[in-house]
Design a protein around this nucleic acid. Structure first.
Lengths: 253, 253
DNA sequence: GGAACTTTGTGCGATATATGAACAAAAGTC
DNA sequence: GACTTTTGTTCATATATCGCACAAAGTTCC
């Protein structure tokens, strides 16, 4: 791609939209400039443009995003076949085992939920399509990282001690890498309250017809109901059956 | 706003993203140019920029959106207080009546789901935050349209015969306007299979502390279980109780 | 009340982007 | 295989955007 085929204004505007996700819902021009590293004049032009287009509201002091922003994500969810293909299987699995089931894909070091069938809510976290979790400490994340070349997975996990969400969270990158090897060998990942106390989950990879892992499928359950050690015997068959059925239906992406 | 405070490139890039929602998941440069009305050269630059930023993939022929796009919608859902405030009430209502409950806001002539508590799925349509439905034939849409000045509502509904999703859909704008008057007087809207055969729903407005309607709350139920005529007696008290409790908690937006 | 500070709005030259026509390359047609 | 049609790419130029520097308007704190 040539230098001149890049539209700076578009890149900056998207940075501005994402800035709202990281902090407060109401941001001033200066707030946005600080969060994005853009010049104030540029941040202002981006914000005024978003407001003009109806993606943001402006009360003269603060900007807020409007629901119109959801059109953008909706463009992905409605245009991408994966969510539609997996939904019936998700419903079936969730119904059969009486727990929430989800499908996610990898985006950088985070997993992104693209479809979900939820049962009675037991977690404090409210997950839905578009929600993001750190890949390193989520069952679907482990499965997706395990499918990458080792160097790539290590790069995504990063050097530092990882953020501990609970006392059970593995914070040592090497420990996570070792776990990835186990996951790769076993074909599934179990998480025991590493993300939230009281929550266990188990995930399997979803491969397309050519065998490439394109997503992950999981079931989450309260630790009180199903201890981590029993997750596999309880849920693995249903997950693997769904993965097997989905395999010929999936293309890449 | 001055003319020069508008970033054309940003507006065009957003048009391009939305173009994917309207049609196929895989679009060529020319496809995008046609759908957006942009010059092919400009459409190409937008697409290459999106690809460079990781929002799109390019295989040399077709572009597809990547899950990174969901960051944009997520910025809204995580930054806006409304979804977080209503979720617990939604869960409670849904649990109490054993049916799915949702909250949506108006965006143009469509309603946008911003939060949802779903029970066992009974509909063919899979709704989630970000999903859109035509306001004119959805219970929450009727409630939100009824809260607008009459001229504004009429403008949004438009002149033409409305699209009929089922044989029950009201397609005459005047019939819808008359229904809005009834909704305004009654304080709730009931839909009897206008959007999908076999599905009834009832919605109430959610007003903020100053009395301005900022969203709508609904319950959907299979027509076989609960005929439209009995929706109000069955579900209205729970909806109104939730709306009353939410009122002091809501600010505008 | 006013000095010190922060935030916001604006004019301008340098620089980057949009445009549409022209060319190149496929793809489809007969 | 030569024709037409569609699609992708390049280029020069007219135009719009960028970011700086300054001015104006709000805040904060004595």
């Amino acid at each position: 791609m040539r230098e001149t085929d890049f539209i700076g204004g578009l890149a900056k505007g998207l940075r501005v939209i994402e800035a709202f996700g990281e902090a407060e819902p109401r941001l001033s021009i200066s707030d946005v400039a600080k969060l994005t590293g853009l010049d104030r004049a540029t941040a202002r032009r981006c914000l005024l443009t978003l407001a003009e287009l109806g993606y943001a509201d402006y009360d003269g002091k603060f900007f807020t995003l409007t629901p119109r922003i959801l059109r953008l994500g909706h463009a992905y969810l409605s245009a991408t076949p994966l969510p539609h293909i997996v939904q019936p299987f998700l419903d079936q699995v969730s119904e059969a085992v009486g727990q929430s089931a989800s499908v996610s894909v990898l985006d950088g070091a985070e997993i992104v939920y693209v479809a979900r069938a939820s049962q009675r809510r037991v977690m404090s976290i409210n997950l839905m399509p578009g929600s993001r979790l750190p890949a390193a400490c989520a069952s679907m994340g482990r499965v997706l990282l395990a499918a990458l070349p080792e160097a790539e997975a290590r790069a995504l996990i990063g050097p530092g001690p990882l953020k501990a969400y609970t006392p059970h969270t593995r914070t040592d990158p090497e420990a996570v890498m070792a776990e990835l090897a186990r996951v790769r060998a076993a074909g599934y990942a179990v998480i025991d309250q590493e993300l939230e106390l009281g929550l266990c989950s188990i995930a399997v990879p979803l491969a397309d017809a050519r065998g490439r892992v394109v997503a992950a499928l999981n079931i989450g359950a309260p630790a009180a109901q199903v201890p981590a050690a029993r997750m596999a015997e309880q849920y693995l068959p249903a997950l693997q059956a769904a993965a097997r059925q989905l395999r010929p239906l999936l293309r890449q992406g």
